[in-house]
Design a protein around this nucleic acid. Structure first.
Lengths: 243, 243
DNA sequence: GCGCAGAAAATGTCAGACAATTAAATGTAA
DNA sequence: TTACATTTAATTGTCTGACATTTTCTGCGC
């Protein structure tokens, strides 16, 4: 049925065995793994091989290690921050390495973001509103580089998503929003396009403040459409230049 | 400002250096990294240390290695399948290790899923509809275990999301849908609740087939509400049992 | 030109050693 | 007894060197 599991690479096999134990709950948070020497004899491999396996798990934030007596490897509680980071890295690479069309990424992002808007309008805190307003203000600054404008845009939208007050939602959205940044960075934001975007951002913030989900959705839809045209122009220019 | 970068762990530093090079596009897909020996002398460390760093990157699917002459480590194209897998693993662990409330996860999942429904209604292929119908049929089989019922539920919803024909969306949703499964597995599905769910699934499939986004959204909302009550009951029972 | 053996290059694995770190156990003085 | 300094043991972090395995290229004989 599926491809052969390729019996090679002992460290991968050992990592998988331990990973499965963690995922299936056979090892709980903060539980200590056997020492490297014990694992080595348990799996009948050398210590460097065990270490390679442990490093694989550490790269996925599944374990943390602690030196010294009564140290060792411990099952790690995956924090939201780390999960965000991993998700963003993976999403960004997925988009950049697979020639994903701007339209596809843009559609995904705004589809998901619009889904958050009603919750955000309902639950928004003064904090989130303040962040949104501050970023809007930053976006009007003259002499702001395209890259900084983009970064501010991401911060604005992150605040919008966070306003929905659902950390799981924020986590899932982080990938969609942040992974778009490299694509957005290919866009040259003219003064006119910045005005357009800032105008829509202001309308969105107003709608969220007024707890008006309908208005927020409408403006987000407009922003999605506008971003799409900007992106398509940029992609077209880019394609012309490289041919 | 931020916490000290902790100068420890050479393999982590080396992994970060290479990872940054890949993420920032300084190394492109299929480009070969220097050999382990070369990296070792370049970073002034021993080969085992370099190997630990490479294993970290391999764990994130950033590189692949190939043995033999002219083998080595190569920047790997991150496939959708691998990205899915990583995202699901991370999401599942995030939920199980952080005592996320059922309501929070459920809300996030259905909020995102409802966002996909309009696109799915518009673009659904016979393939996706067939999968949905097949899973509905499986869910009516008597003697189906709760776990199998749950797995079928996930397959049904995955087909719904995939029907939106946006792979980026499917990727982002995979985490939200699959990570719920362990939580759903705590629910005991009575015959009556299964009937309820199958009824809603049928209504959803009908709406998607009829390209009726409004009906799909309404039924998804109902399903979200019903799932929420089922989950809350299960959590309550679970809490009573353990106190 | 073709097939085959050998060389070469690279990763995979092992063994053993030492350094660095840390918490517990122990000892010492007020 | 208590507080503090010291020792000790356990464990990870790193290095050196070696050998095994895999894969490709090269050159030779035909």
């Amino acid at each position: 049925m599926k491809t052969e599991p390729k019996p090679t690479d002992l460290s991968a096999q050992i990592a998988k065995a331990i990973r499965d134990a963690i995922i299936e709950g056979r090892m709980i948070v903060d539980e200590r793994l056997p020492s490297e020497a014990e694992l080595a004899s348990e799996f009948n491999v050398s210590r460097p091989t065990v270490r390679e396996a442990l490093k694989r798990l550490a790269a996925q934030s599944l374990i943390r290690t602690q030196r010294g007596a009564f140290g060792g490897a411990f099952v790690k509680r995956l924090s939201y921050e780390e999960a965000y980071g991993q998700h963003i890295t993976t999403s960004t690479l997925l988009l950049s390495m697979n020639a994903v069309r701007f339209e596809t990424a843009c559609e995904a992002r705004y589809t998901l973001e619009r889904a958050c808007a009603p919750l955000a309008a309902q639950r928004r805190s003064p904090d989130h509103l303040a962040t949104m307003r501050a970023e809007i203000h930053r976006q009007t600054q003259p002499g702001l580089s395209d890259e900084s404008f983009c970064a501010s845009d991401v911060t604005f939208h992150r605040a919008l998503v966070d306003a929905a007050a659902n950390p799981v939602l924020s986590y899932q959205l982080a990938g969609a929003v942040e992974a778009m940044q490299p694509l957005m960075n290919m866009i040259t934001f003219t003064e006119r396009s910045r005005e357009q975007i800032v105008g829509l951002h202001t309308a969105i913030a107003d709608a969220i403040e007024a707890k008006d989900p309908r208005a927020a959705d409408t403006k987000l839809e407009e922003l999605a459409a506008y971003t799409l045209t900007l992106g398509q122009d940029a992609m077209e220019k880019h394609a012309r230049k490289s041919t």
